[in-house]
Design a protein around this nucleic acid. Structure first.
Lengths: 235, 235
DNA sequence: CGCGGCTTTGATGTTCATCAAGTAAAGTGG
DNA sequence: CCACTTTACTTGATGAACATCAAAGCCGCG
């Protein structure tokens, strides 16, 4: 009972793939089909782990659809979340080109489709196609830069400021909406901003009491954007 | 009364430059001399600013000798230090390939020599020489990765843990010695780890009292490495 | 319906920022 | 070279911010 799609075999639709304009620019038809044949698209259900820190790196991974978190686990078993990111913002891991094993884990916060391309092939294309290489460097830099910037912003702020920043991050960068379903638990937010879960929850309650947000479980509505921005700037 | 050097005109010694093995691999003699002619080596005295956030990016900058800090200044005028780094660990800024203006400032903590190469030329070489491009991606990734890792380590720790981490960072990564002169003020350490200067100083005093370090002004000697490592891990 | 995990809130103590005051060190001008 | 100014450093006292612990409510799942 599968729905008819425009590309029935789900094969070689790369030519019309929207991601071509992001990371895979300046490739001719032949190169595109080389990628197409070598690539493997994998689906991950919400909560599934895409790769673990320490796993060998074989593929260049690109998020096509969904939402993922990049994180690491310390010796006590608790997580530190490095970034939460959407497609077009995330290109593989930051260390695929200078290390053999993943340094951080990646898991799906929503059902996600990941396009995996053998790293060897990407390397070949870089070697052969300078314009492709230049663009890829630009995209990779932007990804790293975003992770660095988020870390700096978090580090600078106190508890309330961090929560405000994260809420604005979800509203502006991830969902582009004032009302959204948080893709993470309170505990995960705590793991992201390096604060205790209890105080994350307390701050949510404060914001609710002060009319800055409405919240029901994971559903959040920002009701006073101005005030939230002030807290994010001040905190 | 200039001392005689092996390359009297300080021109085109690039062929024997030790940095060739780091960022400028896989270049033939002709390409090396192209770089050599286009490059400009600039000296910065301790305390001088190499570039400011917001400056237009023209060059690919490489630290040949010295020690620098990458930082940004917030609206209140206080600094946030992003990383402190030596040559061979630092290649230009992280955003030279995807932005037109520097996002962060860079200044010299010790007298430093910076090799500046027109970015256009680097782009040309990337386009023409795939192996050069591949290596450059690897080096750029490592630089970004280091900055990200430092941020994560700092975020995770409390005050004492952060100080311990920074001292170990200087001892192991920067100076490779148990005794060294701090290249930064207490205030700058505070700007690095996002804590107040007073508490940074207090923690130094605590460490001194507990026999973990000896310190005299900026001169630091780590006298109990084991304990420092425990604090860094626990904190 | 019972169990376990996530969420919430309160109470308590620790950690940290801030303010203030004093000391040392380092630059500045005569 | 000394007096002066400025800046960095140091310590204590105080209150605010935050972690931790504990208990209770909620929700999903078997």
């Amino acid at each position: 009972m599968a729905t008819m799609t425009e590309t029935p075999k789900n094969k070689c639709n790369c030519i019309s793939c929207e991601l071509r304009n992001v990371a895979f620019t300046n490739l001719n038809e032949k190169d595109i089909s080389r990628i197409c044949e070598a690539r493997e698209e994998r689906h991950y259900a919400r909560g599934e782990i895409i790769h673990r820190e320490g796993d060998a790196i074989h593929d260049f991974k690109y998020l096509k659809h969904g939402l993922v978190k990049l994180y690491r686990v310390n010796s006590d078993g608790d997580e530190q979340i490095i970034t939460i990111t959407r497609p077009l913002e995330f290109v593989s891991n930051t260390n695929v080109f200078h290390e053999t094993h993943y340094r951080y884990s990646l898991s799906a916060l929503e059902d996600s489709d990941v396009c995996c391309i053998r790293l060897d092939l990407i390397r070949e294309l870089i070697e052969e196609n300078g314009k492709f290489a230049l663009n890829l460097i630009s995209v990779l830099s932007r990804t790293s830069q975003n992770i660095i910037a988020i870390g700096l912003e978090i580090r600078q702020r106190n508890l309330a400021g961090r929560i405000a920043y994260v809420l604005l991050y979800f509203a502006n960068e991830i969902f582009r909406s004032m009302i959204f379903d948080l893709p993470v638990s309170r505990k995960e937010i705590a793991d992201f901003i390096s604060m205790s879960p209890a105080n994350v929850i307390r701050t949510f309650s404060d914001f609710r009491r002060d009319g800055i947000i409405r919240s029901n479980g994971r559903t959040i509505e920002i009701t006073d954007m101005k005030k939230l921005e002030v807290i994010s700037r001040r905190g």
